[in-house]
Structure formats: C-alpha cells, structure tokens
Write a protein that binds this DNA or RNA. Structure first.
Lengths: 315, 315
DNA sequence: CCTTGCCACAACCAAAGGTTGTTCCAGTAG
DNA sequence: CTACTGGAACAACCTTTGGTTGTGGCAAGG
C-alpha cells in the first residue's frame, strides 16, 4: 500500500472525477488513472465505477474511504511528531502507570487542543541531555539527589507528592490492616526488583531504608510489573511499595491489598524539569496547569529525603 | 512518506539493529539502511544513532515510534475493510444521527470484538442491490412501501420504532408545551427540506399528511441539518420533525425545544435488511442482538403507515 | 593487534511510476 | 444521423526510485 495512492484515492473521491483530482495533485490524469488502478489491484477490489462523466465510488470504495482518510490523518500526525519548530509537546513520564502519567492524562483532558507526545525515558541523564538539546520539552523526575546537581539551564519545580502504599497478597500478615505505620514494617520483607542502582529512585529508597531501618530487597531480575504482582499475590511473606496513583491492570480476584502507610507517610516527590529557554508555547500551559493542581499541598505527616527540593508558593 | 519505510523503521526499532530487521523483512541490510536514510531525509530528523553494535532510537525516533505503529495498524485496518471473505461487517444506517446509528453504537459497545464498517447509503435501491451482490451485509430501512416489494432473497425484520418529536425554536407557539397531540399540529407549518421524492421516508411522511391533515413543506433546497436547525431556531412560525433518538450537535443556548407528540405518537419503523444466504458470522450476532433490544415493544398509542410490516415475536 | 559484528558508500540493474500521444466511449447538440 | 465534447484507458517512452552485490570503516573484545 502506497500512501500517495491513498491520497490520490481520497482526492478522486472528493472531486468525483480523475481529471480534477489530477489537477489538485499536480499530476496528469493518466498518472491518477495508473495510481488508482494499482491501488485497486493491490486491494483486489474495484474502488470506482468509471463513467464518461466522472468516477463514482463503489460500495467497497465507500467502505474504504473513511479508513483512507484516517490513514492520512495518522500519517500527518506522525510527520508532525518530529516536525522541527511546531511539533507536539514532548513530556517524559518515566513509566506509563505512575502519578506523572495520570497528571498528563488529566492535562490532556483539560487541554485537548494541545498535541502531546508522552514518552518513557528510563535514565535521568538521558532526559536531562534531551531537554538541554531541545529534543524533549519536559520530564517528571525526583530531583536534588546528592552529587547529581541539575545543570543551571534546567529549571524544576516540585509538582506532586505521591504517597507510597504497601502492596500485599491476601495471605500477608498485614493484609487485613486498614493502614500500617512505618514502624510496623520493620522486619517484613519488602521486594522491589525494579530498582536500578544509580537512579534517583534508588537514592530515594536508600534513604528510606537508612532512615527507618526497613528491609528492602532489590535482588533478582526484574521480569516486569506483571511478574512482580504475581509473586507478591502468591507469597505471604512478601510485600512491595507502590505509588498511590499507580494504576494496576490486574484481575480483581487475585486479592491484592493496597495499604496506606502512616507515621510518617513516605511520599515520592515528582518535579517537573524543563529548559530555561524552551520556547514551546504549550510548556507554559503545562506549567500553569501543574501549578494549579499542586495548590493544595500539605506536608504534615509525610516523609521525603533531606535532599528533595522545598515546595515553593506559586507566584 | 512511504509505508514500507515506516514498516522498516518499526522492525529496526524492535530488532535493535539493521541486520536482524533486514532478515525479518527479507531484504538486504543495505536496503534497510537506504530505507531508513530516506525516511530520515524526508522527516528531516535522525531516527537512530548507529553504533558498531546496532542501532538505537533517538528521542525523535522514540517520539515517532508510537505514531509509526499506529500508522501500520490503521493501514492494516484499511486493507481489511475491503478484504474479500473476512472483512468487517458492513451495515448501512442511512444517516449518521438516526436511531439506527445509535443502535450500531450500542452494538459495538456490546461486541467490541466485532469489526464494523458503518456506511451511509442514500438510496434504498442501492442498498438492496449491494446486499444482493454481497458488498453490503445489512441495512436499516423502512420497508413495505407499496409498489416497491423486497426481492425474495432479501429478508427483513422490524427492529426499532423511533418516535417522532416536534423540534421548534424558542419563539414557536408550541415551544412551551410539554407535549402536543397530532391534532394540535394542524395549521402549523412543519418544514422538512430533506425529503426526497421516491424514497421510503417520503412515502412515510406522505401517509402521515394524508392521515392527519398536517402541513408538511418539503420545499427549498436542503442545505444540511445545520442550516435546518438554524432556521427552525430563528423562525417562530416554523417547526420540524426529528427522531427521538436523533442526536443533535448544537449549542445549548439556541433554545431548541424537543416536544413529544401524542394521540397518536408517529413512530418511524426501522427494519433490518439482509441477504438470505449471507454467511458473515457477525451478521447472526447482530440479528440476535437486535432481537434482544427489540423485546420490549408496545405499539399502543403509536401510528405507523398501513404498509409497515408487523412486529414478529422472536423465536 | 587482529578479529568480529554491524553499518555506510559505490556501482549496477530492474522495475515502478511519471509523461506525452492516442483511442475509446457515452451523452449531447446540430 | 452525425459530429462534438468531456472523461478515462491504453501504449510507448523515459526518468527515478529502490533493490542487489561488493567493499570499506569503525568500535568493542579477545
């Protein structure tokens, strides 16, 4: 299938005849005739009935037409996604099920007119480099990790604190609790196979362990969140941490429990990062939106590492 | 943009290297290299960073990738829409805002696994011919019009009665009524510029006029339903009929009123038409679904023309 | 330092896809 | 009845695209 042929097909369908479509496309009528013939040959159906006064869509052609239009739309969007200058706003949300992802969904609902490309960049260094190069517009990250200062041309603002919850299977000792304190977690095995040394979230959990003496195991290969949930559901002695806003796609009958943690509640601090000189108009809209959602912040009873940036009052 | 190049791009992104992608696509590595280079040249961005151990997506490449996948998906669906044998179920709903269209939306929600192509065929003759030729699987129509019998190989069953409502602007004499009787409508001008002589709905309205002595004007060119609604909203002396299930896309503040009609309520009878020998598996599902929705039928207090087929009890 | 694995470049060739010129066909006017 | 008009298909030709084979460059690893 050739997109040029599809474009020709739509032009002929709109014009009602080959000649006019040919003028529109700036080719000869014979070229249009050839393109349509080739498309019909590839698809194995006749798309137009040719008459001496033009071309009329067959039933097959009518069925194909909306798909053809959609195809051209999607192609245009694809090209636009990498068009220099006026491309969609590119925002990195680390992973597709976290709080940042939810924020971007809400932002999209609030501003459906803004074209977005949500991306998943694993490494913070990559994200920062991409922001500095202009290839990325913004990233949600935890910033302030000791020894890894942000370059001066990168600005950041803390936008959402995500409370961590304990996730257990039905057989876990704490499965029945409506909430647990951090002190109650000492001695329980908490398994987080996704943690990669050197990342900002590794630093976060290192601090959490150091502060409260928890037992967090990052051992074993990470087979993905499905495997993690599977294991947690089936292993009574195992639990894991999970962001409060993290969406699980999981059959309800596995009996996984989400248990709030208190005294204090560990919260994961998400900041928005962007380049000082980024001119993308939608970036300002996003920042304004996030400033609005973050207005009702109250840090009482929560914990974050020392190195996390302070909340600032919106101007 | 060339779909083959996009396909190649996705293959390379998945494989992580040109060579493996080349094997998958059954071409040489050099061909893959050329295709990617051409795609990059067309888009104006670099999609991969080439290393001696493979190819890695750039940020632009990562942004482009989901659009590329979507493009291939849509292309596949487009091809499938005209594929002989296992193409989607094609159902004609006459116009996109009527009761039949709503039924098909509900059917799609109930059976999202069934691929559908909803079509809009103006003429009944066209629809019947298409059904007989196998190019169309089903059509919603009012059947039984005198002098235009269905061919014996076309089966039909009445599936939904759509009550007609009076649509008026805020200044109309009946605008404040909670409901009106057919008798109250005599003398009021009812404007239906969409009616085309010779169609089954023209026959319906002819019978309606003959039965109750209404004043229905079909004069003037039809500039589309937007223009119709515009005129009705602004003209106190004008009203029109509209199906109860017809969805209006209209700013709420224009003050259009939908007023139920009683004593009796004129209902427009939609039947499903299909070919006796049509083997499409989804057609049976659709018929079963419609038989289910039509179960709660009660014709008391309604009117349809004499020639409309009777409701049959589902087997 | 050499081997290995992978990608880019060059030369070549077949085929796709464009152009011009022409034919065919069905309404329509004379 | 015939000639004309407008529109699509066919034929011949040519350019350009996109494939192949052959070769060179480059970084990682033994």
């Amino acid at each position: 299938m050739d997109l040029e042929a599809v474009r020709t097909f739509v032009a002929v369908a709109d014009a009602g005849q080959f000649q006019e479509a040919a003028v529109e496309l700036a080719v000869t009528q014979q070229a249009v005739s050839k393109r349509i013939a080739a498309l019909e040959r590839n698809l194995g159906v006749r798309l137009f009935t040719r008459t001496p006064r033009g071309a009329q869509l067959t039933i097959d052609g009518q069925a194909f037409l909306p798909h053809a239009r959609e195809l051209l739309r999607v192609a245009d969007r694809a090209v636009a996604s990498v068009r220099a200058g006026r491309r969609p706003l590119r925002v990195d949300v680390i992973n597709s099920r976290g709080a940042a992802s939810g924020l971007m969904r809400d932002f999209h609902r609030a501003h459906p007119e803004i074209d977005l490309d949500v991306m998943l960049l694993f490494e913070m260094d990559t994200a920062v480099a991409a922001i500095r190069s202009g290839a990325l517009d913004a990233s949600f990250r935890a910033v302030g990790v000791p020894g890894r200062p942000l370059p001066p041309d990168i600005e950041s603002v803390r936008v959402v604190d995500e409370p961590l919850q304990l996730l257990t299977g039905p057989g876990h000792a704490l499965a029945g609790a409506r909430s647990v304190t951090v002190a109650q977690l000492t001695g329980h095995r908490i398994w987080m196979p996704g943690i990669v040394p050197g990342t900002e979230w590794a630093a976060y959990y290192d601090d959490l362990v150091a502060e409260f003496g928890l037992t967090i195991e990052a051992t074993g290969p990470n087979f993905g969140s499905d495997a993690l949930l599977d294991t947690v559901a089936d292993t009574p002695a195992l639990a894991t941490f999970m962001g409060e806003h993290t969406r699980l796609v999981w059959p309800a009958d596995h009996g996984l429990r989400r248990i709030p943690v208190t005294d204090p509640t560990p919260v994961y601090p998400h900041s928005l990062l962007w380049h000082r000189d980024n001119p993308h108009p939608a970036l300002a809209t996003l920042r304004a939106y996030l400033a609005g959602t973050a207005a009702d912040h109250d840090g009482t009873g929560t914990w974050t590492p020392d190195w996390t940036p302070h909340w600032t009052t919106a101007p």
